[in-house]
Amino acid sequence: MTDTLTGTPPRDDAAAPAPPRPVCTRRTDRRWTRSKVALLVLGIVLGLLTIFPLLWMVSGSFKTAAEVNSATLLPSAPTLDNYRYVFTEVPFLRYMLNSFFISATITVLALWFHSMAAYALARLKFRGRDTIFLLIFSTLLVSLPVILIPTFVVVRALGLVDSYAGLIVPAIFNAFGIFLLRQFYVSLPAELEEAALVDGASYWRIYRSVILPLSKPILSALAVFFFLANWNAFVWPLTITSDPDLRVVQLGIATFQQQYVGDWNYVLAAATVAALPTLLIFFFFQRQIVESIKNAGFK
Protein backbone atom coordinates (compact mmCIF):
# COMPACT_ATOMS: atom_id res chain seq x y z
CA MET A 1 0.00 0.00 0.00
CA THR A 2 1.05 3.56 -0.74
CA ASP A 3 0.26 6.85 0.87
CA THR A 4 -2.69 8.45 -0.94
CA LEU A 5 -1.24 11.94 -0.64
CA THR A 6 2.43 11.43 -1.45
CA GLY A 7 2.34 8.14 -3.33
CA THR A 8 5.19 6.75 -1.21
CA PRO A 9 4.96 3.47 0.61
CA PRO A 10 4.17 3.72 4.31
CA ARG A 11 7.05 3.61 6.73
CA ASP A 12 7.16 0.50 8.86
CA ASP A 13 8.48 1.82 12.16
CA ALA A 14 8.09 -1.55 13.89
CA ALA A 15 10.41 -3.26 11.44
CA ALA A 16 13.04 -0.55 11.51
CA PRO A 17 16.08 -1.48 13.62
CA ALA A 18 16.40 0.38 16.85
CA PRO A 19 19.35 2.71 17.09
CA PRO A 20 22.19 1.33 19.21
CA ARG A 21 22.18 2.38 22.81
CA PRO A 22 25.10 4.37 24.03
CA VAL A 23 27.34 2.26 26.21
CA CYS A 24 27.72 3.78 29.62
CA THR A 25 31.23 3.25 30.88
CA ARG A 26 31.82 3.82 34.53
CA ARG A 27 34.89 5.87 35.04
CA THR A 28 37.02 4.93 37.96
CA ASP A 29 38.43 7.78 39.92
CA ARG A 30 42.15 7.10 40.03
CA ARG A 31 43.19 10.42 41.40
CA TRP A 32 45.46 10.35 44.41
CA THR A 33 43.68 11.96 47.31
CA ARG A 34 45.03 12.61 50.78
CA SER A 35 43.10 9.69 52.24
CA LYS A 36 44.46 7.26 49.63
CA VAL A 37 48.01 8.44 50.18
CA ALA A 38 47.60 8.14 53.95
CA LEU A 39 46.25 4.60 53.64
CA LEU A 40 49.08 3.64 51.31
CA VAL A 41 51.70 5.01 53.68
CA LEU A 42 50.04 3.29 56.62
CA GLY A 43 49.98 -0.03 54.74
CA ILE A 44 53.66 0.27 53.82
CA VAL A 45 54.63 1.09 57.42
CA LEU A 46 52.64 -1.81 58.84
CA GLY A 47 54.07 -4.15 56.20
CA LEU A 48 57.62 -3.13 57.05
CA LEU A 49 57.00 -3.50 60.78
CA THR A 50 55.57 -6.98 60.15
CA ILE A 51 58.32 -8.26 57.89
CA PHE A 52 61.29 -6.60 59.64
CA PRO A 53 61.58 -9.21 62.47
CA LEU A 54 61.53 -11.99 59.88
CA LEU A 55 64.25 -10.32 57.81
CA TRP A 56 66.29 -9.71 60.96
CA MET A 57 65.98 -13.38 61.93
CA VAL A 58 67.06 -14.63 58.50
CA SER A 59 69.98 -12.21 58.20
CA GLY A 60 71.09 -12.94 61.76
CA SER A 61 71.24 -16.65 61.04
CA PHE A 62 74.11 -15.97 58.60
CA LYS A 63 76.07 -13.73 61.00
CA THR A 64 78.70 -14.47 63.57
CA ALA A 65 78.04 -13.93 67.26
CA ALA A 66 79.95 -10.64 67.23
CA GLU A 67 77.91 -9.28 64.32
CA VAL A 68 74.63 -10.27 65.97
CA ASN A 69 75.63 -8.58 69.23
CA SER A 70 76.70 -5.45 67.36
CA ALA A 71 73.23 -5.23 65.77
CA THR A 72 74.47 -4.84 62.22
CA LEU A 73 71.73 -5.19 59.64
CA LEU A 74 73.55 -7.35 57.08
CA PRO A 75 76.38 -9.84 57.62
CA SER A 76 79.78 -8.79 56.30
CA ALA A 77 80.53 -12.35 55.18
CA PRO A 78 77.54 -14.74 55.28
CA THR A 79 78.37 -18.05 56.90
CA LEU A 80 76.61 -21.42 57.15
CA ASP A 81 78.43 -22.42 60.33
CA ASN A 82 75.35 -21.63 62.42
CA TYR A 83 73.19 -24.08 60.46
CA ARG A 84 75.97 -26.66 60.50
CA TYR A 85 76.17 -26.38 64.26
CA VAL A 86 72.40 -26.66 64.68
CA PHE A 87 72.21 -29.94 62.77
CA THR A 88 75.45 -31.54 63.97
CA GLU A 89 76.01 -30.52 67.58
CA VAL A 90 72.35 -30.52 68.61
CA PRO A 91 69.64 -33.12 67.74
CA PHE A 92 67.56 -30.44 66.05
CA LEU A 93 66.62 -32.76 63.19
CA ARG A 94 65.04 -35.09 65.77
CA TYR A 95 63.03 -32.18 67.13
CA MET A 96 61.75 -31.36 63.65
CA LEU A 97 60.84 -34.98 62.93
CA ASN A 98 58.92 -35.15 66.22
CA SER A 99 57.02 -31.98 65.36
CA PHE A 100 56.28 -33.20 61.84
CA PHE A 101 55.03 -36.61 63.01
CA ILE A 102 52.86 -35.14 65.77
CA SER A 103 51.45 -32.35 63.60
CA ALA A 104 50.71 -34.62 60.64
CA THR A 105 49.04 -37.28 62.80
CA ILE A 106 46.88 -34.73 64.61
CA THR A 107 45.90 -33.13 61.29
CA VAL A 108 44.79 -36.38 59.66
CA LEU A 109 42.85 -37.65 62.70
CA ALA A 110 41.29 -34.25 63.38
CA LEU A 111 40.03 -33.84 59.82
CA TRP A 112 38.52 -37.33 59.90
CA PHE A 113 36.70 -36.96 63.23
CA HIS A 114 35.74 -33.31 62.69
CA SER A 115 34.26 -33.93 59.26
CA MET A 116 32.11 -36.79 60.57
CA ALA A 117 30.92 -34.78 63.56
CA ALA A 118 30.20 -31.73 61.44
CA TYR A 119 28.24 -33.77 58.90
CA ALA A 120 26.10 -35.28 61.65
CA LEU A 121 25.44 -31.88 63.21
CA ALA A 122 24.62 -30.29 59.85
CA ARG A 123 22.63 -32.95 58.01
CA LEU A 124 21.31 -35.62 60.37
CA LYS A 125 18.16 -34.87 62.32
CA PHE A 126 18.15 -36.15 65.87
CA ARG A 127 17.02 -34.94 69.24
CA GLY A 128 19.37 -32.50 70.96
CA ARG A 129 21.40 -31.74 67.84
CA ASP A 130 21.36 -27.97 68.31
CA THR A 131 22.16 -28.29 72.01
CA ILE A 132 25.18 -30.47 71.28
CA PHE A 133 26.44 -28.01 68.69
CA LEU A 134 25.95 -25.12 71.12
CA LEU A 135 27.97 -26.94 73.78
CA ILE A 136 30.76 -27.69 71.31
CA PHE A 137 30.78 -24.11 70.07
CA SER A 138 30.89 -22.75 73.63
CA THR A 139 34.25 -24.45 74.19
CA LEU A 140 35.78 -21.87 71.86
CA LEU A 141 35.30 -19.36 74.66
CA VAL A 142 37.51 -21.37 77.03
CA SER A 143 41.22 -20.58 76.82
CA LEU A 144 43.99 -23.16 77.09
CA PRO A 145 45.31 -22.09 80.54
CA VAL A 146 41.87 -22.81 82.04
CA ILE A 147 41.81 -26.45 80.90
CA LEU A 148 45.55 -27.10 81.06
CA ILE A 149 45.62 -28.59 84.56
CA PRO A 150 42.42 -30.72 84.19
CA THR A 151 43.70 -32.08 80.88
CA PHE A 152 47.06 -32.91 82.45
CA VAL A 153 45.35 -34.73 85.32
CA VAL A 154 43.30 -36.82 82.88
CA VAL A 155 46.32 -37.62 80.71
CA ARG A 156 48.37 -38.60 83.76
CA ALA A 157 45.55 -40.87 85.01
CA LEU A 158 45.55 -42.60 81.62
CA GLY A 159 49.30 -43.12 81.77
CA LEU A 160 50.05 -41.02 78.69
CA VAL A 161 52.66 -38.69 80.20
CA ASP A 162 55.93 -38.63 78.24
CA SER A 163 54.47 -40.38 75.22
CA TYR A 164 53.44 -39.55 71.68
CA ALA A 165 49.85 -40.42 72.57
CA GLY A 166 49.85 -37.77 75.29
CA LEU A 167 50.99 -35.20 72.75
CA ILE A 168 48.53 -36.28 70.05
CA VAL A 169 45.24 -37.36 71.60
CA PRO A 170 44.32 -34.17 73.57
CA ALA A 171 45.07 -31.99 70.53
CA ILE A 172 42.79 -33.87 68.12
CA PHE A 173 39.51 -32.42 69.31
CA ASN A 174 39.00 -28.78 68.39
CA ALA A 175 35.66 -26.99 68.19
CA PHE A 176 36.94 -24.62 65.51
CA GLY A 177 37.21 -27.37 62.92
CA ILE A 178 33.76 -28.75 63.70
CA PHE A 179 32.22 -25.29 63.52
CA LEU A 180 33.89 -24.39 60.21
CA LEU A 181 32.97 -27.70 58.56
CA ARG A 182 29.40 -27.58 59.82
CA GLN A 183 28.93 -24.11 58.34
CA PHE A 184 30.23 -25.42 55.03
CA TYR A 185 27.97 -28.49 55.06
CA VAL A 186 24.90 -26.40 55.86
CA SER A 187 25.50 -24.37 52.69
CA LEU A 188 25.54 -27.47 50.45
CA PRO A 189 22.32 -28.11 48.46
CA ALA A 190 20.08 -30.75 50.01
CA GLU A 191 19.19 -32.15 46.56
CA LEU A 192 22.52 -33.98 46.45
CA GLU A 193 21.67 -36.05 49.51
CA GLU A 194 18.07 -36.56 48.45
CA ALA A 195 19.18 -37.96 45.11
CA ALA A 196 21.65 -40.28 46.84
CA LEU A 197 18.97 -41.47 49.30
CA VAL A 198 16.62 -42.20 46.41
CA ASP A 199 19.34 -44.33 44.83
CA GLY A 200 19.56 -46.32 48.06
CA ALA A 201 22.78 -44.91 49.47
CA SER A 202 23.27 -44.92 53.23
CA TYR A 203 24.40 -41.88 55.21
CA TRP A 204 27.89 -43.33 55.49
CA ARG A 205 28.03 -43.77 51.71
CA ILE A 206 26.76 -40.21 51.19
CA TYR A 207 29.42 -38.89 53.56
CA ARG A 208 32.18 -40.86 51.85
CA SER A 209 31.17 -40.47 48.19
CA VAL A 210 29.36 -37.11 48.10
CA ILE A 211 30.31 -34.93 51.05
CA LEU A 212 34.05 -35.58 51.27
CA PRO A 213 34.80 -34.90 47.57
CA LEU A 214 32.96 -31.57 47.87
CA SER A 215 34.90 -30.73 51.04
CA LYS A 216 38.38 -30.81 49.54
CA PRO A 217 38.91 -27.01 49.53
CA ILE A 218 37.89 -26.47 53.13
CA LEU A 219 39.63 -29.64 54.31
CA SER A 220 42.83 -28.41 52.67
CA ALA A 221 42.55 -25.09 54.48
CA LEU A 222 41.83 -26.79 57.81
CA ALA A 223 44.80 -29.07 57.24
CA VAL A 224 47.01 -25.99 56.98
CA PHE A 225 45.48 -24.46 60.12
CA PHE A 226 45.85 -27.64 62.18
CA PHE A 227 49.36 -28.40 61.00
CA LEU A 228 50.65 -24.89 61.69
CA ALA A 229 48.94 -24.71 65.08
CA ASN A 230 50.51 -27.98 66.23
CA TRP A 231 53.87 -27.23 64.64
CA ASN A 232 54.02 -24.04 66.74
CA ALA A 233 52.65 -25.71 69.90
CA PHE A 234 54.72 -24.95 72.98
CA VAL A 235 52.69 -24.90 76.22
CA TRP A 236 51.18 -28.40 76.02
CA PRO A 237 54.41 -30.20 74.95
CA LEU A 238 56.25 -28.37 77.71
CA THR A 239 53.64 -29.54 80.23
CA ILE A 240 53.31 -33.16 79.18
CA THR A 241 56.89 -34.19 78.29
CA SER A 242 60.26 -34.23 79.99
CA ASP A 243 61.97 -36.82 77.78
CA PRO A 244 64.49 -35.15 75.42
CA ASP A 245 63.64 -37.71 72.73
CA LEU A 246 60.07 -36.37 72.65
CA ARG A 247 61.09 -32.73 72.45
CA VAL A 248 59.40 -30.78 69.63
CA VAL A 249 60.94 -27.99 67.59
CA GLN A 250 59.57 -25.10 69.67
CA LEU A 251 60.93 -26.64 72.86
CA GLY A 252 64.21 -27.13 71.06
CA ILE A 253 64.40 -23.41 70.30
CA ALA A 254 63.59 -22.62 73.92
CA THR A 255 66.42 -24.94 74.97
CA PHE A 256 68.70 -23.08 72.60
CA GLN A 257 67.81 -19.80 74.27
CA GLN A 258 68.70 -21.24 77.67
CA GLN A 259 71.97 -22.89 76.64
CA TYR A 260 73.26 -20.22 74.26
CA VAL A 261 72.25 -16.96 75.90
CA GLY A 262 75.14 -15.05 74.38
CA ASP A 263 75.21 -16.93 71.06
CA TRP A 264 72.10 -15.57 69.39
CA ASN A 265 73.38 -16.60 65.97
CA TYR A 266 72.63 -20.24 66.82
CA VAL A 267 69.18 -19.35 68.14
CA LEU A 268 68.36 -17.35 65.02
CA ALA A 269 69.50 -20.19 62.78
CA ALA A 270 67.31 -22.67 64.64
CA ALA A 271 64.35 -20.28 64.50
CA THR A 272 64.82 -19.82 60.74
CA VAL A 273 64.84 -23.58 60.17
CA ALA A 274 61.70 -23.96 62.30
CA ALA A 275 59.89 -21.16 60.47
CA LEU A 276 60.74 -22.39 56.97
CA PRO A 277 58.10 -25.20 56.81
CA THR A 278 55.34 -22.88 57.98
CA LEU A 279 56.23 -20.26 55.37
CA LEU A 280 56.31 -22.86 52.60
CA ILE A 281 52.97 -24.36 53.63
CA PHE A 282 51.30 -20.96 53.74
CA PHE A 283 52.84 -19.98 50.39
CA PHE A 284 51.51 -23.06 48.60
CA PHE A 285 48.10 -23.23 50.31
CA GLN A 286 47.14 -19.57 50.69
CA ARG A 287 44.46 -19.91 47.98
CA GLN A 288 42.75 -22.72 49.90
CA ILE A 289 42.78 -20.63 53.07
CA VAL A 290 41.10 -17.69 51.36
CA GLU A 291 38.53 -19.92 49.63
CA SER A 292 37.63 -21.68 52.87
CA ILE A 293 36.94 -18.41 54.65
CA LYS A 294 34.90 -17.19 51.68
CA ASN A 295 32.81 -20.37 51.37
CA ALA A 296 32.46 -21.35 55.02
CA GLY A 297 29.20 -19.53 55.61
CA PHE A 298 30.43 -16.27 57.13
CA LYS A 299 27.69 -14.05 55.72
Rank of each mutant, 00 (worst) to 15 (best):
P9Y: 06
A16Y: 04
P22L: 15
T28P: 05
W32C: 02
W32K: 03
T33F: 08
V41D: 02
V45W: 01
W56P: 04
K63H: 05
K63P: 06
T79I: 08
N82S: 15
R84Q: 13
V86W: 03
V90R: 11
F92C: 10
S99I: 03
I102A: 09
V108W: 06
L109H: 05
F113V: 15
S115C: 04
M116F: 03
A117C: 12
Y119N: 02
F126E: 03
R127I: 07
L135N: 00
I136L: 13
T139Q: 07
L140P: 05
P145V: 10
V146S: 00
A157P: 01
V161F: 09
D162K: 12
A165E: 11
V169A: 12
N174C: 03
L180V: 09
Q183R: 15
A190H: 13
E194C: 05
A195F: 03
S220Q: 09
F225T: 05
T239R: 08
L246V: 10
G252H: 06
T255P: 00
F256K: 02
Q258W: 00
A275C: 12
L276I: 10
P277S: 08
P277K: 11
L279S: 04
L279F: 15
L280R: 01
F284K: 04
Q286I: 01
V290K: 11
E291V: 07
S292L: 07
K294N: 13
